[in-house]
Design a protein around this nucleic acid. Structure first.
Lengths: 123, 123, 123, 123
DNA sequence: GTGGTCTAGACCACT
DNA sequence: GTGGTCTAGACCACT
């Protein structure tokens, strides 16, 4: 489920973060579900436990998981308020993308087409 | 022209990068135009020159400016190759946004509405 | 009574701890009074029970509440010893605050003014 | 200048953070001054470089220092806006302290006396 | 030289 | 068993 490219210039812990986020967003990992323990995932991926720990810590800082000492790491459930916060953040990111797309000469249609294709792929 | 919110939790050099990108995207800064020197901008904004340097360096890495030793930093002109590269990168970013939006329960319509509003604001 | 800002960057369990402390300090929660059960408060606030548990555990570690297995969590009564301990801890915290205030160029008067205003607000 | 108690329950990296903050607040470390390199401080204190790195990273997150790859870590200069931000944060902390002091039965005079003594000690 | 990432392996606190 | 901290030592990117 988790794929790490050890030859990539992207740090392993960053790849781990992106992988786990995808699993959360796609619903593979559900709210309050327990993540593999640091050691377990480390041996599964043949990656050092410290690197897993670093990724989990960062996911905790970003609000995607929570950790309970002696019990493990768990997926943070979403609620209405966190939805609003995320909506604001996503709109900010969309704004940046659209400004850059405009500068690069892409039309509004190009952007809408791209998004339509993404929605079809994600279905 | 550049507004830095020193009370924000966003690092100053990140804010600088975003500010300069906005000036590039909006056409205030034109291809091959010279940016203020590190020292000049530092004294203007009463910010540490090292912070300006860090922002310029990152903008150079991202391909938005180029530096000419002894002459200064300049806006990188766009060409077809950079357009294609940027298009691919923007689609990747859109993909991430849409995955997270889906997870947060936002409909396709919500996203399209947000984008329409952004286009109206940017006009 | 308890207000959680889910959009804040402050972790929810930290906000919970601060909220419950306020209720203790203001006398709303009295010594030996029973706190809502973990499940009860979780459903009231539509927050994950694990988060409530984490906050209760930390309040217990800090000496503000005690837990009686099978009966629930209760407000810890204060005694002379805990007063002395708290006094020393508060003086340590004040010391840190004053050192940072000095560094930031705030005068002694600024600090005393701030404290006077706080006392008026808390009346 | 930096004193670490290896037998303390407080993690070494936390002690390091507090020590460096004190050096900043007392003016021993000045704005834009270079901190000892990770390796240098590690060998000075006979502590592992990773632990120093962790402390420096956290100080960077908290806005007290900034890091420049290949050059070192430096003290973040203060400015008017960061003063305002800090003022707000310190008032929040004072508020918490005063609420707890009230609860513990300490009078306003007790608090003011404590602060006066702290100011005399810091002179 | 310097920060950033990573491995291998250990011990502690807490459940 | 599990997360958190720490040591010892290595390699890479950047200045």
């Amino acid at each position: 489920m988790i794929h790490i490219d050890l030859r990539s210039r992207e740090p392993i812990y960053e790849q781990l973060i992106q992988n786990i986020k995808k699993l959360i967003f796609s619903g593979v990992l559900k709210p309050d579900e327990k993540l593999p323990s640091v050691r377990e995932l480390a041996s599964q991926l043949t990656i050092n436990p410290n690197t897993i720990q670093k990724a989990y810590k960062e996911l905790e800082n970003q609000g995607y998981i929570y950790s309970a000492r002696g019990r493990g790491n768990f997926i943070m459930p979403i609620n209405e308020a966190s939805k609003l916060k995320t909506y604001d953040e996503l709109v900010d990111k969309l704004n940046e993308i659209i400004r850059e797309a405009n500068y690069m000469g892409m039309s509004k249609e190009t952007i809408f087409n791209a998004i339509n294709i993404i929605y079809e792929e994600n279905q």
